[in-house]
Design a protein around this nucleic acid. Structure first.
Length: 785
DNA sequence: TGATCTATAATTTTT
DNA sequence: TTATAGATCA
């Protein structure tokens, strides 16, 4: 761990060498923030500070992992294992596991993910007999979540004038009561939601001075990454923990604050200097990531925001190529353009897949890119889908495990009580719920004493079998490790068998997922159970808590040679040689949901700043004239952010003048992409459009989006009116060569049959609509001959 | 009670 | 377009 200081610039060195006292690092995009943070921790340790006394909090597991690895590399030993590095949520959950009993929770409390939490909200709404059309669980949950993040208790919520006015105006005056009931319900279930991990930890520190003192002594040096994204709960916790030693170092960039929807407030970073005396402030303004063009553009854009800490990012990197603005006809064309350009860049400049990222505002935009990439056989990884642990089959097995660990967990109980089917249906469950509520006991307790509560004989025996089974699992937990129990549960409940017997492709996948879950438990059980003196909790309970805090991206390999697709939010902190910023359209980006106030719009702009600064060398900004939304075609204007880019740094030939087309496609290209796009037969009819039409000047400004008159030819279907006697035939009777009638596509001939028994597909040539692939499970076909 | 079908609503960002 | 919830049937 020699000269770790070499390779740092003066500013960076200043930050690293500052040991005692509060420190605020304002780190512009690509200014070596992580490097400074990790080097600083290494430096602290080199100066003799014990790793056990250092706490570093991040927002994502990924960031935590990366920091740990980098510190290990600098130190060259495994002292870094003793550092407390993790996300706010995981670190607090870990501490709460040994302290939760003080607050009346079981130490093996369950962590509810968003789905569980919404489900609790739903139960509460039902029981309060509120209309869930008006009180949508998601909306109500968001409201509760915001309150928690702002440390607003149910009581304060109910008595705050402004909050009440807001709810009243939205015609949802009962939210305060729901909030209260929700908290009580979670408590009764022995469960904490994501926000509770912060809130309850805060309460713990506030209520028990001895606990506070313990952790103040332990964490003598505190470091917070992405400080601009902290919410009031996190802010107060840091303040409490740091109050004794005041060795608090925060790193952030106000220009990259993009989580205010989650309660983050930029005030925290602006306030920092007032919270402590003698705050050392270091600004890192030199960017090592991007070209001058990109940095200049980013600076220009962010200048339009009012609220910010003054700073100017600069770089000594090459000036680089202009930013290319590309307009396409539809969202599908956008996908094709991007896939095509990636292919071309790979050939021309020898880029590998992993040097490309396609970044967008909303997850829904991924579809067009996925399709296009798949068609070109370009491997890609999509971030932000359903997490492995959110899959149904995984949640089912995990549901059993959760119930075993914490019998109060009502959500888990409801999930698995009749899966696999064991004759405890909806009627019975409702009855159990009612009994639980009237007797003020948990559902599990109702089941335990079901014999005294007058269930029908058949139902009673089903319930008793269930109770005996769960109890046998619980007792097994005393003697055997998490993996053995999980394996046994899977086997005993027939869950694994049921999936094994499902031979469809999806069934097979589900079966494999269960195997993967079991493997992961095994791996976890067998990994070393102590790190340098500290015993790691290897119980099933600890495992369950840990997996709820994992996200989709946590089990994806970032180094895999694939094109990365993700939202801009998910891309924060990452960098790529080539970036496609997609869907730069009004309504989409800035998003229609976030243009009502100046603050919201400025956050969208910061988001744009983030996406621009992800690019090292090449940046494309794309937008589509029309795209599908809820199944119908919508037309949008180009994003206002495009206009904010410095004109001399962009190449918008594509967007503006159709006449200069040939010379426009950077890198001395001959415009092959363009040719392919027009003439390559992507989908029917495109070639008929002239270049002028396709990439002509942007449409005249319109205040309201309108629907395109004629449908694009790609989507054109010659409508067919089904015969009066139309009746779907049995799909098993369909054979090659038959003449068939389809409700929508009309008459045609079956050319080919594909797929397995459960997922059969027919390729049919229709007289009026050409060849289509028809999924027999979904389509209705009538056999004519 | 359980399975299947039909109607309806919904998409901003996430630990 | 897709996912989900309620309605209907076995």
């Amino acid at each position: 761990m020699q000269d770790y200081l070499a390779g740092l610039n003066e500013r960076q060195k200043e930050a690293v060498l500052h040991i005692n006292g509060p420190l605020m690092i304002i780190a512009g995009a690509g200014s070596g923030k992580t490097k400074v943070l990790t080097t600083r921790i290494a430096h602290l340790m080199a100066k003799g500070i014990d790793a056990f006394n250092i706490l570093a909090l991040t927002f994502t597991n990924k960031a935590a992992r990366e920091m740990k690895e980098r510190i290990e590399r600098i130190l060259g030993n495994n002292e870094a294992r003793n550092l407390y590095i993790g996300t706010f949520h995981s670190v607090f959950a870990r501490i709460l596991r040994s302290e939760a009993h003080r607050l009346g929770y079981p130490n093996s409390f369950t962590i509810y993910d968003t789905d569980d939490a919404k489900s609790v909200v739903k139960t509460v709404l039902n029981e309060m007999q509120l209309d869930d059309k008006l009180y949508k669980p998601a909306t109500v949950y968001n409201r509760i979540s915001s309150a928690k993040n702002a440390l607003v208790s149910p009581m304060e919520y109910a008595t705050d004038y402004h909050i009440q006015q807001e709810d009243l105006r939205a015609n949802r005056p009962a939210i305060a009561k729901v909030y209260d009931a929700y908290c009580k319900r979670c408590f009764k279930n022995g469960a904490m939601d994501f926000d509770d991990l912060l809130l309850k930890f805060y309460e713990l520190l506030k209520t028990f001075p001895e606990v506070l003192s313990k952790y103040q002594h332990k964490f003598r040096y505190i470091m917070i990454d992405e400080y601009q994204d902290t919410n009031p709960a996190q802010y107060e916790i840091v303040k409490l923990l740091g109050a004794m030693h005041e060795n608090v170092c925060v790193v952030g960039d106000d220009a990259q604050s993009i989580y205010s929807f989650r309660g983050a407030t930029i005030q925290n970073i602006l306030q920092f200097q007032k919270d402590y005396d003698d705050v050392k402030v270091v600004k890192l303004e030199q960017n090592y990531r991007s070209t001058q063009t990109i940095i200049h553009a980013a600076n220009e854009v962010i200048r339009n925001n009012k609220a910010q800490i003054p700073k100017v990012l600069f770089t000594e990197n090459a000036s680089g190529e202009k930013i290319r603005i590309v307009r396409t006809m539809t969202d599908n064309d956008e996908g094709k353009f991007v896939a095509d350009t990636i292919q071309e860049q790979k050939l021309r400049n020898h880029f590998s897949n992993k040097e490309f990222a396609i970044l967008y505002r909303t997850n829904a935009q991924s579809r067009a890119f996925e399709e296009a990439l798949r068609r070109m056989n370009i491997p890609y990884t999509m971030y932000g889908g359903v997490s492995f642990y959110q899959r149904k089959e995984i949640k089912d097995l995990v549901g059993y495990l959760r119930l075993i660990v914490n019998s109060r967990d009502e959500e888990a109980l409801k999930r698995i009580i009749n899966y696999p089917v064991r004759g405890i249906g909806k009627t019975t469950i409702d009855r159990v719920l009612l009994l639980a509520n009237t007797h003020q006991i948990t559902m599990w307790e109702v089941l335990e004493k079901a014999d005294q509560l007058g269930f029908r004989a058949g139902t009673l025996s089903a319930i008793q079998d269930f109770v005996i089974m769960i109890k046998s699992f619980s007792s097994m937990l005393q003697k055997q490790n998490a993996y053995d129990v999980a394996f046994h549960v899977g086997k005993q409940t027939n869950l694994v068998k049921e999936l094994f017997n499902d031979k469809s492709t999806e069934g097979l996948q589900r079966y494999e997922n269960i195997q993967e879950l079991l493997n992961s438990i095994k791996e976890w059980v067998e990994s070393p159970d102590n790190e340098e003196g500290e015993v790691i909790d290897k119980t099933l309970g600890a495992y369950l808590q840990q997996i709820t805090l994992l996200t989709d991206s946590d089990n994806k390999d970032p180094d895999a040679d694939t094109v990365k697709l993700m939202t801009i939010h998910a891309a924060k902190g990452l960098e790529f040689a080539c970036v496609f910023a997609a869907g730069l359209e009004e309504q989409l980006f800035p998003n229609a949901m976030a243009i009502n106030t100046r603050e919201e719009l400025e956050e969208e702009r910061r988001l744009f700043y983030v996406v621009v600064t992800r690019a090292k060398n090449k940046l494309w900004i794309t937008y589509a004239n029309t795209r599908y939304k809820f199944g119908s075609l919508v037309q949008n204007e180009p994003s206002r952010f495009i206009e904010e880019l410095p004109k001399d740094h962009i190449d918008n030939t594509y967007a503006g003048g159709g006449t200069k087309m040939q010379s426009s496609f950077g890198f001395g290209s001959t415009g092959s992409v363009y040719e392919r796009m027009n003439g390559g037969g992507w989908s029917s009819g495109k070639s008929a459009l002239s270049a002028e039409k396709k990439y002509g000047p942007p449409p005249a400004k319109k205040t309201t989006p309108e629907y395109l008159g004629p449908k694009p030819e790609a989507k054109k279907v010659v409508e067919h009116t089904p015969s009066v006697d139309f009746q779907a035939s049995d799909i098993n009777d369909i054979a090659v060569g038959q003449k068939v009638e389809h409700q929508k596509f009309g008459f045609g001939e079956v050319l080919k049959l594909e797929g397995n028994q459960h997922n059969r597909m027919a390729i049919i040539r229709f007289d009026a609509n050409g060849e289509k692939k028809i999924l027999l499970n979904y389509a209705r076909l009538k056999i004519l001959s």
